[in-house]
Write a protein that binds this DNA or RNA. Structure first.
Lengths: 217, 217
DNA sequence: GCGCTCGGCGCACAACTGTTTACTGAGAAC
DNA sequence: GTTCTCAGTAAACAGTTGTGCGCCGAGCGC
């Protein structure tokens, strides 16, 4: 999107092995965490010599950072579409949850990576994911600001709401992933719970009072 | 609490180096993830020979599982107290958030460990944390069931609510930790956001309609 | 076509890993 | 006081790791 990609067949080849490295790393991350993956392990999986790795990345951590952009870039578009699509609350929730479920089904390794490394052992990757999710939250907040229910909401409250949504999405995606691998509840159950949680938030939103003390229950 | 602890001074010594191993592991986990920590690395930090490790744990993963019980055991009591303490919603939220903040200040390494390994690269530890948090969610649900607002809530809905609370606690604790290390927003800011999110949930709770279709906003 | 660029290779290097083996010696048991 | 238990040791094992070096040789610009 930003780098110049000269169409010479040599750069093409380079881009292809770079892809292979990224894919191999992603695959290995299914059962390990980034900080325990060896450079040699990756090159072995790709079928190139260890030294060749340095032609593409400085570090394994560097490869990790590259994976962050890739993984969250695609999710980005999906969620944004899912949120904007319908303004009716019930349908919107269903669509959003479905969108997440579909994404997890199509890119399981990507979200596995994000969830695992969000609080993982590699600082650079952690902060990369963090700032990506921050931008994400801001965007969601912006979309939600357009709803009628958001009238009178302060920017800060909207921001908080956006973070809540993003965190919920990540957790839901993670739960879907577990479901797909047979660990934890079924996909239906996860979707069910996710919808109810979104509904809970939705109710809270509709009756939100920004500053007043909350009455006793 | 469960194991027989003969007061012979030899078992005492053994228990002490076991503690040292656990502490060393916890300390190393501050900047790495469990799957990348070496057995030798731990024994070196403690000052014993690598082979001595096997007198206490079969694996590094085994040590990890032991850390899970320890880390979440203490949090358990704290949160339960924080939740039960006050029935007024506003005060309860404040107390809960304060309790989390205090806990993070007192046991930063423990929650660091839990957050990092919850979705980390070691399956055994992952499931140990998962089941611990599950029990946790059930307990929270039970406490919340005693509120007046929970009249008419199905067991399933309560369970969902409990999970929401637990997830929120973990995320908040993680945010507090980041704050303490100077990454991300300040502790005050984290507490502020956490309180608002809890308030949002609280509003949602009060206006919850279990099955009916949600009206347009 | 000639020279240059540069992705990839092979090899060497020192450092490290987990695990086993036979052992020592302080303390328990009787 | 003698015997047994067992946490911890030292040494060796075969692998593995990241990184540096010099060298190809296919493809590029010209």
């Amino acid at each position: 999107m930003s780098s110049s990609t000269p169409h010479t067949q040599r750069d093409l080849k380079k881009a292809r092995t770079r892809r292979a490295l990224l894919d191999a790393g992603l695959a290995l991350l299914e059962e390990q965490s980034l900080s325990s993956i060896g450079l040699r392990e990756i090159t072995r999986a790709v079928g190139i010599s260890p030294a060749a790795f340095y032609r593409h990345f400085r570090d394994v951590a560097d490869l990790g950072v590259a994976l962050v952009e890739e993984s969250l870039g695609s999710l980005h578009a999906v969620i944004r579409a899912g949120l904007t699509e319908r303004s009716d609350d019930g349908e919107r929730i269903d669509h959003l949850v479905d969108a997440i479920a579909r994404f997890v089904r199509e890119h399981p390794e990507h979200i596995r990576f994000v969830v695992r490394e969000r609080h993982g052992g590699v600082a650079a990757v952690r902060t990369a994911i963090g700032s990506q999710l921050d931008r994400f939250a801001a965007e969601v907040a912006e979309v939600l600001a357009r709803d009628e229910v958001s009238r009178g909401w302060s920017a800060e409250d909207l921001r908080m709401l956006g973070e809540t949504y993003v965190d919920h999405m990540v957790m839901t995606a993670s739960a879907f992933l577990d479901a797909a691998l047979g660990e934890g509840p079924s996909e239906e159950a996860v979707a069910h719970t996710a919808r109810r949680q979104l509904r809970l938030i939705s109710f809270g939103r509709r009756h939100w009072i920004s500053d007043a003390a909350t009455p006793a229950p």
